[in-house]
Design a protein around this nucleic acid. Sequence first.
DNA 1: TCTTTCTTGTTGTATTTGCAACAAGAATAT
DNA 2: ATATTCTTGTTGCAAATACAACAAGAAAGA
Lengths: 153, 153
Amino acid sequence: MTDEEKNGKQIWRDIGWIAREVNSTANREWRDEHLGDNRFIYVIRVLEHPGIGMQELATAIGVDRTTAFRAISKLVADGYLEKRDHPTQSRLKVLYPTAKSEGLKDRLFRFESDTFDAYLSNLSDTDVQTLKQLLERVRLTQLTQADDEKNVK
Amino acid sequence: MTDEEKNGKQIWRDIGWIAREVNSTANREWRDEHLGDNRFIYVIRVLEHPGIGMQELATAIGVDRTTAFRAISKLVADGYLEKRDHPTQSRLKVLYPTAKSEGLKDRLFRFESDTFDAYLSNLSDTDVQTLKQLLERVRLTQLTQADDEKNVK
DNA sequence: TCTTTCTTGTTGTATTTGCAACAAGAATAT
DNA sequence: ATATTCTTGTTGCAAATACAACAAGAAAGA
């Protein structure tokens, strides 16, 4: 085992590679519904957390808030999301799914599960659990440092 | 443990989140040297594999070849890389580091190791090994399906 | 051989992305 | 209270990204 393999370099590379790979596959899948460019992710998150704030959503997904703003604007224009004023603070906006996105809910959720399950097909159930726990700890490490993640994972 | 936690959904989300987080941190770090937008990655790969082809590099990084082409063009213009004709097939181009990028080699390599090591600080050595092996298996699963990755990992 | 397919480099183009900046309301401090 | 800082929504802008398309050489098949 070389020196290179002792540090986290390869882990980062693998994570980056897998993320890009899954992402571009998913985006191609949803392009026809105008849900490419990661927009399907926004819809999934809003379906899971109706009433979520824009900033919260951006942080959860991990994109710049201006990027999220524009993606959301497009989703609103396409009828997938509804932007409402915050019940008490009129300055804030919150997001809700529409009938259109509710209609896609099952397909979206199933897609998300099935796609990544396919990538995990070579791993045993135990391995999957281990991987999930390790990744969560890595993510939470970052959370401690940055200290800017909300409760939406 | 809910049903949701049995499938790969959260793994994908964590991978995506970590990848984005590390990436944007790294890009901010190297922006001043005009090595933002993942360009530092190209330099690292060429330093590791002098003479690598453009297509090979694009595949290894996981971006479209036209994206790689433009990033490389910029790196050549900025003096970080040199583009040469393939020794035997003049149609092909291969990439080499320059004195400028060689001079950054140590800093680049150290950065790559240190950055991700920081994200792994909460994991034991055993955990890191486990995580690395599991991720590699996930990446190789994809390789089997897509069957379009070269020998550069 | 010759034709067809594949690979590679390259450019045009529409779209997305992130950063900087600004306005305005909220929270905090003095 | 009032001044200052923080947060959020929003737009302008430069740059990157991916996809389509094209040219030209390579490889493969007939």
